[in-house]
Simulated assay, not measured.
Amino acid sequence: MAVLIYIHGFNSSECSHKANVLKQAAHSFHAEDTFISPRLSWQPKLAIQQLEELIEANLWQGVTLIGSSLGGFYAVYLTEKYAIKSILVNPAMQAPMLLKDYLGPQLNPYTNEMYELTDEHMVELEALVVAAPTSPRYWLMVQEGDEVLDYRAALQAFPDAAKLTHEKGGDHSFTDFQRFSADIFKFAEITTN
């Protein structure tokens, strides 16, 4: 059976709200084994290596990614590399530029991990930029009320997305995300209704 891999955002974790919503949905669909939500390294290069290992271990049965914010940025790189599908939730399409504002000491509020974000990590992010994503592989979910990212950057990057959820209002966390649980598992070809 196909799997859905959740990619959390910057200073988030596998225990974020969206990850928990999807975990509960998988349980309600009796498809617990189809949902994977790893804790990723804060270092971009290591996070990508972790995700590549997970994808390669499951590629034979079908993989769909769902990435939020920085996780959406990672998902684009991986979607193109493996020619799979992704759901992008308020993705940080300009991650290398955006995260420059966060250089220096960091504390992940979910894991209490302390670390330092450096210019070297920005170089690692730059290496993951995809200039022209294959739009039909993606379901793009954006809310105009995102207080962290400019939703228009994502709309410009995916003019022909396979599926588009574009809402006024909302916020960076994607308000009322749970409304889409059933459709997400259907898009990932895990459920049929």
Rank of each mutant, 00 (worst) to 15 (best):
Q143C: 01
A92L: 05
F158A: 00
A157H: 06
P105T: 12
A182F: 14
A47T: 04
A157I: 02
A31Y: 11
A153H: 15
H30S: 10
Q106F: 03
C15G: 15
M141T: 00
P91M: 09
A153S: 15
A161I: 00
E14R: 15
P159F: 01
A161G: 04
D101P: 08
S37C: 12
T118K: 10
Y6S: 10
L78S: 09
L107V: 13
A75T: 04
G62C: 05
P44G: 04
A182P: 14
E124I: 02
G104M: 05
L155P: 07
F187S: 10
M97S: 13
F177K: 03
T64S: 07
E167D: 04
V21G: 05
N11T: 13
Q94W: 15
V130T: 02
M1D: 13
T134F: 00
V148W: 01
L88A: 03
V21W: 09
L4A: 09
T191R: 13
D176R: 14
L117Y: 14
S86P: 02
Y151F: 12
T134R: 04
L99C: 03
G9I: 12
G67I: 06
S68G: 06
K100M: 09
L40Q: 02
V129S: 08
S173P: 05
V3E: 13
L125T: 00
A131S: 13
L107E: 11
H172D: 08
I66Y: 09
H17R: 15
L59E: 03
A131I: 03
G62V: 00
S68T: 08
I5C: 06
D176L: 13
S68A: 09
H166F: 03
K168P: 09
D160G: 02
R39N: 11
S37V: 10
D176A: 14
T111I: 06
K163N: 00
L4G: 03
P133H: 00
Y74K: 10
H17M: 13
S69N: 06
K45N: 09
Y77I: 01
T118F: 02
A162V: 02
D171N: 15
L99K: 09
V63R: 08
L65Q: 04
L22Q: 11
L4P: 05
A127V: 08
A31K: 14
D160K: 03
P136G: 01
V142C: 01
F29R: 13
V63Y: 07
G9P: 08
N90R: 11
H172K: 03
V89R: 06
V148F: 12
H17T: 15
Y82V: 06
Q106S: 08
Y151K: 02
P38T: 04
G72L: 11
R39W: 14
L107W: 08
T165R: 05
N11E: 13
D146A: 07
A132R: 13
